[in-house]
Structure formats: C-alpha cells, structure tokens
Design a protein around this nucleic acid. Structure first.
Lengths: 341, 341
DNA sequence: TTGTACGCGTTATCAC
DNA sequence: GTGATAACGCGTACAA
C-alpha cells in the first residue's frame, strides 16, 4: 500500500478503480460526457456519487495550466455601485465553469497592486479591475498577463486590454448642464471620498459651470471621508452655514444626495424650492424618495454583463469588435431639481 | 532543453537556477525566511525580483494539500447586511496569507449546495456560510469537510461546526414589544423576500403581539419579491388601502422601512403621528432620515470579525471556547416610533 | 472510444 | 542550513 500525503479525499483514481476504467476516462466523462460511451458514463457517475468525489481544482489547474478563476478587484464592498456590477458578473459567470475570486482594494492603489500580484499567481482565466488608475507596476503586470483583462466603470482611449464603463467627466458635466438649464445660478458640489472617478465627475461638473460663467469654488465642498447619508446631511449644513445663498447642489453619489435631502428636511428647508439636489448613479431609492431625487443613471449591471461577454469572447478565441465600450449614462429628472419660479 | 507545457511564466526552478540554489531552498526562503541563511536569502530575493516571479498557488495547494482560500457563501451581494459582514471578513482575512473566495447563492438552497461542492473542491482553508438552512446534502458535505466551518448571521443550538450571529426570532420579538410598549394597538408587518431569517423575525414579532392579544393576521403583508425602497412604499399603500386603521408597522428590513416612510410622505401622512415605523438592521441611513427611523441594530461587522477569529483559532490548533457565539442586537429608538398622544 | 506515460510547479520527507 | 527525491491529483499527447 502506497503511502499518501494527501488529505485522504477520494481521487479520480479511486473513482476509476470503482468504475473499472482508467483515470483518463473518468476525467473525460466529467468534463465532456459526450466523449465517453453511455454505459461507462453511468458506471462512472455512480462511482462518483457513491464516493462523493469532488474534483481537485488545484490539481486540474496545475495539469492544464489554466484555472477557472476570474479575479475581480473592486475598491469597495459596501458601495452599492460595485454591488450591482458584481451581481451581474456573478450572474453571468457562475452559469459556466468559471469561478469568481473577489478582492477588495479599499480604494488604495498599492493594495490593488498587491491583489493583482496574488491573483496572477492563480493563473486566472481572466481579470476584472475597476477603473484606470493602477500603479505603474500594476499596469505592467496586467499588460504582461497572459489572460484577458477588463477595466470596468470607466472609459479611456488607452486601455490595458479591454474596457467597459462610461465617462465620469461627461456625467459630471451633464449634471452641471442640467442645473444650469433649470435656471439655477449659485450651484455647489458636495463630494465624499473623492477617489479618481469622483474627482473626474467633479471636474466635468466644474467645467460645465465654468463655461457658463457660474463656477464658484466657495460652493464646492469635498472631504476624503467615505460617503454616507449622515455625511451628506452634515456637509450641506456646513455649506449652507458658509453660503446660505446656495441654490442647488450636485452630490458625488446618491447616498450623499439622500443625506442632503434629510439634512434639508431636518433644517426645515424645502426641496426643491429652497435647494435643488442632484445625485449620481441613480440607485433604486432615488425614485422612491419624497421628493423624488434627480440623478445620473449609470448602467452598472450592464457593465458587469458586458465585461463577462468580452471575456467569454476572448476565451472563445474571438476578438471583441471594440476594446473600449462606452455604456453611457442618462439623466433622470425628478422633483428635486424642479426650479422654483 | 526540456519541453514545457506551461504558460512560460518563471517557476521556482528558474529562481533556484539564477540564485544557484535548489528549489526547496527557494521555497523555504519564500515561506519562512528564518529557515534560510541571510546571504542565500538575499540572492534568492534578488532573483525573485529580477524574474518577477510569482508563486503558483495551485501547485502549492496541490503539493501541500492545503490552500489558502477561505470560501464565503452569501445569499446576496446587493444586500447591505451581508456587505458589512463581508467587509469585516476581508478586513480581517487579507492581512494574513488567506484569500477570500466569494459565492452568491441568490437565496437558493440548491445553488448554495452547488457552491459548497465547488468550494470543497478547492480544499479550502475554511468555509463561511450564511445561516442554518442548508439542504441535508449540503449539511452532510460541510460536516465531513476537513476544515473549519462557520455559519454566520444566526445562532442555533446545533451548529455544523461553529456559528456566530444573533436570534432573528428574538429580534422580531423585541420589535413587537417595543411597539406595544409605545402604546400602539393595531400593529402590522411588512416583509419582502421572506427568506428563512426574515420569516423567523416575523414569527418572533407575531409571538410578541399574540402574547399581548394584539396579533391581527390581516395587518401582516408579505411578498417573495426582493426588498427595495419602492416596494416598501408600495406595500404600505396596499396595506393602508385594506386597513386604514393601522397604527404602526414593523418592516423586515431597513430598505423597506425607508420605503414606508417615503410612501407615507407621498401620501401626506405624518410619521410617527399617523404611522409608527420600525425597521431591522439599523443601516447607517436610519439615523439620518427625517424623521429618524427606529430599528433593531445588528452587529454585522462584528459577526464577520468573530467568524474570522474563530477560524484563525482553529487553524492555529486552538479550540474556541464557545462553538456558538450570540452577538445579540440592540433596539435603537428614534423619532419614527414616538407614539402620538 | 479507451488507455499509457509523463509533466504541471510546488512541498514533505529524509539524508547530509 | 541545504539538497535529492518522490509525491500531490489531474490533463495532455500519443498510442492502441
């Protein structure tokens, strides 16, 4: 009897013994049943069930030098924005043999680089990362990775490999144009976290105001604290204390916008009569709020789905038509930006 | 020159060649630097950097019959409740050498079983699953798994291995007691999704009302649709259409509670004067809302942290004092349940 | 359609 | 402290 180091779980050889076939036949029966004759297939299936055999994915990955893992690295787990994209990735991916491995970079580029290094060690089937602000080393690693790489949530003319998202700059600009069109004059901005994407939204927004001669830096208030509803309420209070004449505000995300609404209500201000509010992302609650809240709708689920489609295509040997897909955004006008007369 | 099937990335043998040592020395230098003399260690580190060598985790897992993967299976990615626990797990786990592999069961027990099977195929270092409602087959798989298993979000006298959470039944009961104490009489319930945990909350709530002779099944409204803010608004509308005399409502989660608040505001009802509202989980927005919303606070981050602590202890050979840890909950009384005079 | 021989990259074991 | 050798469990290549 051979000495064994392993954990004692049944192996493909045990199944083969029990079914009276060779290991390779079991291997084939499991991965591509059509390649094995019906009677053998049944004997093998029975043996698998009886032994409760589970294939050892690491051994498989090692032998085939290819794993079924798709690494996904997002900056935040609690941010609903990524949750929707993640949900799409899981929905699409778990149909097939592919498995998701999720990393949380906590909005820290060095942490993202560390995770990329670790994930690459798994020889992943593909990699999905957020945005285009990797460290130079991380970018180099990804460029030399021998698997599809998709950057999500943004668009950029110079992707590492493939990219799907939308322009945050343009989204911010659209928010600015909307408030201007509604007739607002003293227009402010409230931003938390201020990661690169939030920053680009702010820049697009400022650009819109500037081109209309309405940019007033005093009405812009940002913090690196992470966004939350209560922070939105807090910041609008601070902003109004400084500049009570503010007429409308763009929030860098919907949680902040909701907080601004609550802050106004607690202060006895009417929305939109006393203050116009526009958010970003259009989470589900925005339409339900009272008053309903204007926002920039982004196609977060579509981004995840498209990312997986691109990966699938590449894995199937096809080349996607466009390496960069812009899914755009839509302004959702609601009660919170109806200009007072 | 030997023929190679692999993807061509540098291997530990390449590093060994470059450093003029054997592979096992490189292996040791990487895993436990103290076991290798300083000069060799430096030569090896230099070679690693020069080749940009990344260890092949699958080969390592195969050889050691132990991976550094902790499988985590949750029913939902978009539900903030799990997001907080996940964040804790990531925060705790990614410090060390352990990696998270996340599965999404979509509230489907069969899907959970499938994921458990797949994860077990990775010979994980540990497994974390939600709740105690696994299929019998899944439970059997977990019981025979040769790794620590932690069930989170609930407590149960009969855990598979270890467990950390709180009693949903008691949480529901506390909500009922609170409304009764506040003097509410016609008390209702609104529940979406109605997964096992929501169901237990409802049962505890009903139990509290029943023991006070205040249970009225007509005031209970549930749906299997997934919870959302707009659904909360919709359901309170339907419930009030049927029973305009309703005085207070317990929502099975905070999203629904916020939706009920919005629904009331849209309908011109005052909260808490015309309707008392209490939610469950106490998400961050509950305190910021106007009026602020009463809820049952649960320690979701603590649950994730404790789960990892238990795993760490077991992996280090220690046995945790208690196999079941009840982290409890706290009633957060706010404006939304201040009884009208 | 089925089987044999061997390699995948790493680590455990045992010797030096 | 360091090294030679043999597993780890499975898939590829080629033969039958």
């Amino acid at each position: 009897m051979r000495k064994r180091r392993g954990a004692g779980r049944p192996t493909i050889a045990d199944v083969a013994d029990k079914a009276g076939v060779s290991t390779i036949t079991v291997s084939r029966a499991l991965r591509d049943p059509a390649k094995v004759s019906a009677p053998l297939r049944e004997r093998i299936d029975a043996a698998v069930r009886k032994l409760d055999y589970v294939p050892h994915s690491h051994a498989s990955a090692l032998a085939s030098s290819r794993s079924n893992i798709v690494g996904v690295i997002v900056p935040s787990l609690t941010n609903n924005v990524f949750a929707d994209t993640l949900r799409a990735i899981y929905d699409e991916l778990e149909q097939g043999p592919l498995q998701v491995q999720l990393g949380n970079s906590r909005y820290v580029a060095a942490e993202e680089e560390r995770l990329i290094r670790i994930f690459l060690g798994q020889r992943p089937a593909a990699l999905i990362v957020a945005g285009g602000d990797q460290t130079p080393a991380a970018r180099a690693l990804l460029e030399s990775a021998d698997c599809p790489v998709v950057q999500v949530m943004e668009v950029d003319p110079d992707p590492i490999d493939m990219m799907v998202g939308f322009s945050h700059f343009e989204g911010g600009r659209a928010a600015g144009h909307h408030l201007l069109q509604r007739g607002y004059r003293r227009i402010g901005f409230i931003g938390a976290r201020m990661d690169p994407r939030s920053r680009r939204r702010m820049e697009g927004f400022a650009e819109a105001l500037r081109s209309a001669g309405r940019y007033d830096s005093e009405l812009f208030m940002t913090t690196t604290r992470s966004s939350s509803t209560s922070l939105g309420a807090e910041l609008i209070g601070a902003l109004r204390a400084k500049r009570p004449d503010i007429e409308a505000v763009f929030c860098n995300n919907d949680d902040m916008a909701l907080g601004v609404l609550f802050g106004c209500q607690h202060a006895g201000l009417r929305v939109p009569e006393d203050l116009g509010i526009i958010g970003f992302n259009d989470l589900e609650m925005m339409a339900a709020a009272c008053p309903s809240l204007t926002s920039i709708r982004t196609n977060r689920y579509g981004i995840g789905k498209t990312a997986v489609d691109m990966i699938r295509a590449r894995l199937d040997g096809d080349e996607p038509e466009n390496r960069v897909v812009d899914l755009g955004f839509q302004l959702q006008e609601r009660q919170s930006t109806v200009r007072r007369v």
